[in-house]
Deep mutational scan, measured.
Amino acid sequence: YKIYPYDSLIVTNSISVKLPKDVDRTRLERHLSPEEFQEVFGMSIEEFDRLALWKRNDLKKKALLF
Rank of each mutant, 00 (worst) to 15 (best):
W54H: 13
E35P: 09
L53G: 09
L28A: 03
E47D: 11
L19D: 04
D49F: 06
S8T: 13
L19K: 05
D24E: 06
P34E: 12
K62L: 09
I3C: 06
L51V: 04
S14L: 12
L64G: 12
T26Y: 12
I10N: 04
Y1I: 15
R50D: 10
L64K: 14
M43V: 05
F48G: 00
I45Q: 08
K18Y: 06
Q38C: 11
F41A: 00
L19A: 07
D58Q: 13
L53W: 11
I10P: 00
P20Q: 05
I45W: 09
L19V: 07
L59F: 05
D22E: 08
L53E: 13
L64F: 11
R30S: 04
Q38T: 10
Y6D: 01
I45V: 09
K60G: 01
K55D: 10
I3E: 08
E46F: 11
L64H: 13
L53A: 10
E47F: 09
S14N: 14
H31R: 02
S33M: 05
K21M: 13
T26R: 10
R30E: 03
Y1R: 12
E39Q: 14
T12W: 15
R30K: 09
V40D: 00
R27S: 09
D24G: 03
L59A: 06
K61H: 07
S44A: 14
Y6L: 05
E46H: 11
L9R: 00
S44K: 13
V11P: 06
F48M: 02
V11G: 07
G42Q: 13
Y4L: 05
V11D: 06
F41V: 02
S44I: 09
T12E: 09
M43T: 04
E35C: 08
S44G: 12
E46Q: 12
N13F: 04
V40F: 04
D24L: 05
A52R: 07
F41H: 00
E47V: 11
D7G: 11
L9A: 00
L64S: 10
V40I: 10
K55T: 10
E36L: 03
I15Y: 06
K21Y: 12
M43H: 03
F66N: 06
E36R: 03
T12C: 12
L65S: 01
T12K: 10
V40P: 00
M43N: 01
K62I: 09
V40Y: 06
I45D: 03
D49M: 08
I45C: 07
N13E: 11
K60M: 03
V17S: 15
Y1G: 08
Y6M: 03
K21L: 14
Y4H: 04
S8V: 14
K60E: 01
V23I: 09
A52D: 13
R50N: 11
S14F: 07
R25P: 15
M43S: 03
Y6S: 01
R50T: 12
